[in-house]
Amino acid sequence: MRTFGILEAHADCLTFLSDEPISFTITVTSDEGENDEIAEATLKFTYVEKYPDEPPEWEIFSRENLEDADEEEILTLLQQQAEENLGMVMIFTLVTAVQEKLNEMVDQIKNRREEEKMRQEREAEEAEKVTFQGTVVNIENFLAWKARFELEVAEIRQKRQKDEEQAGKLKLTGKQLFETDHNLDTSDIQFLEEAGNNVEVDESLFQDIEDLDLDEDDPDFDPLDMGSDED
């Protein structure tokens, strides 16, 4: 087959899939990068009836260390190279162009990894700053904090005032209670009205009251000293 002469350098990576139409895969690997990175793409080619006057069909069969954007770049490169080489056997040219592109991508892989590492380090530093510095104060969050603080202070003052008022009521004297609670003014009358005829009086306490010799006109008269004369 004519493909053998063209792809001798890649024969160990070549796998034939069919003879009619001719279809095969070839694995293209980049040179190793500084840290032994490689990029790899396995390309599938299928000859069309009018090849090489028309380009072969192709697709990326598999890939390694390549992103979707890298794959799109390779497909675009294949299209450009095929158009430039119409009428000539072009598989070797296409494969060589892809390998050169993979070599470039290895360097891009290294750069991407370094950029990713730097990004992660920056994010870690920012997170550490936030941990030690706290939230940056601006007008909006300061006013929000001030409103919450004033509300909390007002609630504390109201509770303290309520507690003090409650404690003050518990410490009032009988006179203070009488002065502040006007319901006590009529409590005795109300009690008597409610008791009615149920109030019992011991009449024997008053039987001898008329026999007492009470001189109420005497300026030295003192009911409390009534018993002292008997002594």
Rank of each mutant, 00 (worst) to 15 (best):
S23R: 15
S62T: 10
K169L: 12
E59F: 02
D208V: 01
R2P: 09
E114F: 00
L172N: 05
A147E: 15
S30Q: 10
E34W: 02
E115G: 08
L224D: 12
R63D: 09
W58H: 02
Q108M: 01
E126F: 12
D202G: 05
N197K: 10
A82F: 07
L192K: 10
H10W: 10
R112S: 07
D19A: 06
M90L: 06
I109F: 02
D36W: 08
Q207C: 06
Q99K: 11
M105R: 14
S18D: 15
N35P: 00
L86P: 08
R157H: 10
F16I: 03
E200K: 07
E140C: 03
K117C: 05
T186C: 10
F24L: 13
T3D: 06
N197D: 14
E84S: 07
K50L: 08
E32L: 09
Q158S: 13
W145V: 04
R148D: 15
K110I: 04
E104W: 03
T76Y: 15
E37V: 04
A97I: 03
E121W: 00
E152S: 12
L7M: 08
N198Q: 07
M1D: 10
E59I: 02
N103K: 12
H182A: 09
M105K: 15
V130Y: 07
R63N: 09
G134T: 07
E121Q: 03
E216G: 06
L177M: 11
E126P: 02
M118V: 12
E83Y: 08
T186H: 12
A39T: 10
E193Q: 10
L184T: 01
S30L: 08
E57R: 06
N65P: 02
V106M: 02
H10N: 00
N141K: 12
S23V: 00
T42V: 08
D202C: 06
A11Q: 13
A195M: 11
A127K: 15
G134M: 08
W145H: 10
D211H: 06
P219I: 01
W58D: 07
E34H: 04
E194R: 14
A124G: 06
F221Q: 11
F206T: 05
G5P: 09
L78N: 01
K162F: 11
E32Y: 03
V98Q: 05
D218T: 09
T46C: 06
A147I: 03
K171V: 00
E203G: 10
A41Q: 01
E72D: 10
D53L: 05
N138D: 13
L86K: 07
S204F: 05
E164P: 00
E67S: 11
K101Y: 01
K129C: 05
T186Q: 14
L66D: 05
T135C: 07
E115D: 08
E114W: 00
E114P: 00
G227N: 03
I60P: 03
W145Q: 15
L14V: 14
R112N: 11
A154W: 11
L78H: 13
A147M: 09
G174M: 13
Q190A: 12
